[in-house]
Deep mutational scan, measured.
Amino acid sequence: MVVWDEDGFQGRRHEFTAECPSVLELGFETVRSLKVLSGAWVGFEHAGFQGQQYILERGEYPSWDAWGGNTAYPAERLTSFRP
């Protein structure tokens, strides 16, 4: 999975191949867009795999509404991930 700290695949970029309990440890404040290259990941609103969670299947997510636009409580950012 590849993530960016700005919408539209802009800004700082990082690629994950294993779980990440906090993007803050990588110098990111948040993740605002992402691409899942294969498989599925779970993205969490807060560090430590806490808060609202989203199943992220293979594909592109250019902004928060692409992963959470249909929920009652959409998270505008993700800060931890698990494959």
Rank of each mutant, 00 (worst) to 15 (best):
residue 63 S to H: 10
residue 67 W to G: 09
residue 32 R to M: 01
residue 62 P to E: 13
residue 62 P to W: 07
residue 6 E to K: 08
residue 16 F to W: 03
residue 64 W to T: 13
residue 57 E to S: 11
residue 65 D to H: 10
residue 11 G to L: 00
residue 25 E to Y: 06
residue 2 V to R: 04
residue 58 R to L: 12
residue 30 T to Q: 11
residue 75 A to V: 14
residue 41 W to N: 00
residue 35 K to W: 00
residue 33 S to R: 01
residue 48 G to S: 09
residue 77 R to V: 12
residue 65 D to I: 04
residue 78 L to G: 03
residue 22 S to A: 04
residue 13 R to Y: 09
residue 71 T to K: 12
residue 3 V to M: 03
residue 58 R to S: 10
residue 68 G to R: 11
residue 50 Q to H: 03
residue 78 L to S: 02
residue 17 T to E: 08
residue 61 Y to P: 00
residue 9 F to W: 01
residue 36 V to R: 00
residue 43 G to M: 03
residue 54 Y to A: 12
residue 49 F to C: 04
residue 19 E to W: 03
residue 46 H to A: 11
residue 57 E to L: 07
residue 35 K to P: 01
residue 78 L to F: 13
residue 79 T to K: 15
residue 75 A to W: 13
residue 10 Q to H: 14
residue 34 L to K: 00
residue 70 N to V: 13
residue 17 T to R: 11
residue 23 V to S: 03
residue 33 S to G: 00
residue 22 S to P: 02
residue 17 T to K: 10
residue 71 T to W: 08
residue 41 W to C: 03
residue 11 G to D: 01
residue 79 T to M: 14
residue 67 W to Y: 05
residue 70 N to A: 11
residue 69 G to F: 07
residue 40 A to E: 13
residue 10 Q to I: 05
residue 23 V to P: 01
residue 28 F to V: 10
residue 18 A to D: 11
residue 65 D to W: 09
residue 6 E to Q: 12
residue 19 E to I: 01
residue 49 F to R: 02
residue 66 A to D: 12
residue 43 G to H: 02
residue 31 V to I: 10
residue 68 G to K: 13
residue 38 S to N: 13
residue 32 R to D: 01
residue 76 E to R: 14
residue 43 G to V: 09
residue 70 N to G: 14
residue 66 A to H: 07
residue 55 I to G: 07
residue 24 L to M: 13
residue 10 Q to M: 06
residue 10 Q to L: 04
residue 27 G to V: 04
residue 57 E to W: 03
residue 66 A to Y: 12
residue 8 G to C: 09
residue 32 R to L: 01
residue 9 F to N: 02
residue 48 G to K: 10
residue 5 D to P: 06
residue 62 P to T: 09
residue 57 E to A: 09
residue 16 F to C: 07
residue 79 T to F: 07
residue 13 R to T: 08
residue 27 G to E: 15
residue 7 D to S: 13
residue 14 H to R: 14
residue 31 V to M: 02
residue 33 S to H: 08
residue 69 G to S: 12
residue 44 F to S: 02
residue 67 W to C: 04
residue 45 E to R: 09
residue 60 E to T: 04
residue 73 Y to S: 12
residue 66 A to Q: 11
residue 19 E to H: 08
residue 45 E to T: 13
residue 35 K to S: 03
residue 40 A to H: 08
residue 51 G to S: 02
residue 54 Y to L: 12
residue 23 V to G: 02
residue 14 H to M: 14
residue 63 S to P: 02
residue 28 F to R: 00
residue 24 L to C: 15
residue 70 N to Q: 10
residue 1 M to W: 00
residue 65 D to L: 10
residue 6 E to I: 04
residue 10 Q to V: 05
residue 51 G to H: 07
residue 74 P to I: 06
residue 22 S to L: 01
residue 37 L to V: 10
residue 57 E to R: 11
residue 60 E to C: 06
residue 13 R to K: 11
residue 68 G to E: 12
residue 25 E to F: 13
residue 74 P to E: 13
residue 20 C to I: 09
residue 35 K to N: 02
residue 73 Y to L: 12
residue 50 Q to L: 04
residue 34 L to I: 06
residue 50 Q to C: 04
residue 79 T to G: 11
residue 29 E to L: 15
residue 2 V to I: 15
residue 2 V to G: 04
residue 9 F to C: 02
residue 76 E to S: 14
residue 31 V to S: 01
residue 25 E to C: 11
residue 63 S to V: 07
residue 13 R to Q: 12
residue 71 T to C: 13
residue 56 L to N: 06
residue 34 L to V: 10
residue 77 R to I: 11
residue 13 R to E: 04
residue 33 S to M: 00
residue 59 G to M: 03
residue 39 G to R: 02
residue 39 G to K: 04
residue 52 Q to S: 14
residue 70 N to P: 11
residue 62 P to A: 11
residue 24 L to G: 07
residue 56 L to G: 01
residue 13 R to M: 14
residue 47 A to S: 09
residue 49 F to S: 03
residue 66 A to C: 06
residue 24 L to F: 12
residue 74 P to C: 08
